[in-house]
Simulated scan of single mutants.
Amino acid sequence: MPNPLKYNKKFDELNEEEKKLLEINKKTIADFVEQSSSISDVNYATRNAHAKTYAVAKGTFWIEPDIPESLKPFFDKEKFDLTIRFSNAQLKIQNSKKDIPAYGFAVQIRDENGGLLANYPLVNFPLFPIHSVSTFLKLFTAVNKFYIKKWSSLFPMLFQIAKIIPSLLTSDMVRNMIRLIGKRNDFILSFDYYSAGAYRLGDQVIKIKLCPQSVDKNIGRKQKIKDSLKNYLQMHDFAADVLIQICYDLKDQPINRLNVEWKDSPFIKIGEVRINKDSLLDSRNCTNELLSFNPFESKIFFQPVGKIQKLRDEAYKVSVQTRRKINKLLHGKNG
């Protein structure tokens, strides 16, 4: 293989128009979170994305003993402690039996002293449908305004949705959407999970994939997702392979085009995520609801790479600051 491409901060830089749109978007995120308890009809402020928590669990990241020499400095222990949050991508929490199959598998990795090493919010779809930063910001702003103002913001939102259609039509996007439709009723733990965007691994740039080991896709077909997931984790151990791809060439492994898959970069197994049965935490506990899986809180050499990822940094900060402020006030009232 050629030498890995080195990380460059230019991969993350926004232009002036994008910066202005980001400021507008941040205001709508704060507005959404402030009103989120009434939007979702719950007694706390929710996240601005992946609002619905299915479960929170403790896990362990076991490192492969024979990983490549260049990766060993980053994984210098036999195992690391994990906190894992399972979620749905919708902005609004709905008490429905069937949610759209847009699932989150957010992983928080800590060292032996409890210090945070990295956050990785993984999702069950390998691509992100928009690669234009301006288009994404305008759409995200329109969606937030729709949830806050409802019908008066419907047409601006539909207009922005129409603008992303061309980026949904890459062969990779179409193939993965068809595959997702075919798996829409499958058990949440039977899906593969992906970083979608890129991350640093020291000076290298990588993508991450998590592949569950032998989980029956037909589990819990007649149950609510939350119930089937909790029942499974109470009764069964769970294990998944952790694989990475390394960026060697921007043509074959583009960092800022998230609607195409990386090619000519083989997957390397670096370890396994394991959740022992009965390792669930109380997801309704205020401490667990306040958990942040912001990947930009990770150590600098594990942080996200790319323009869309940079937007997530600002969005996470606004969302979590607003959410924590409101929830502490609410918790104080109820305590």
Rank of each mutant, 00 (worst) to 15 (best):
F75T: 12
P101Y: 07
Y120W: 14
V133F: 02
R200F: 07
R110N: 15
E78Q: 09
W151N: 11
L180A: 11
I130S: 05
R175V: 09
L168H: 11
Q94C: 08
Y194W: 14
A142S: 15
I67Q: 10
Y199Q: 08
D111L: 01
F125I: 05
S153P: 08
S167I: 00
G115N: 15
T83S: 10
L169I: 04
S195Y: 06
K79A: 15
L139N: 05
S171Q: 13
K79D: 15
N144T: 08
S134P: 03
G114P: 07
I178G: 03
K98E: 13
I84M: 06
R85G: 06
F136M: 00
K58T: 15
N119T: 07
I164R: 02
K150H: 12
V123R: 02
L71S: 13
D99E: 10
D172A: 11
N144H: 12
W62Y: 13
F128L: 07
K138F: 01
A57K: 01
T60S: 13
F105A: 03
I109P: 10
R200V: 11
S152Q: 12
S195A: 12
N95V: 07
I84T: 07
L122H: 03
P126E: 11
L127N: 04
W151R: 09
K58R: 13
D186A: 04
I130C: 06
V174T: 12
R184M: 10
I93G: 06
I188H: 03
T170F: 05
V107I: 12
S87R: 11
S132R: 05
T60N: 10
L117N: 02
S70D: 10
N185M: 05
T170E: 12
Y120V: 03
T83V: 15
S152L: 01
I161A: 15
F80T: 02
L139D: 10
I161P: 05
K79M: 12
A57S: 15
N144S: 13
K58I: 08
I188Y: 02
S70F: 03
F187L: 01
P73T: 03
G115V: 01
Y103P: 06
D186L: 00
D186C: 08
L122P: 05
Q160I: 02
A196R: 09
L116F: 02
V174Y: 09
Q108R: 14
N119K: 00
D66T: 12
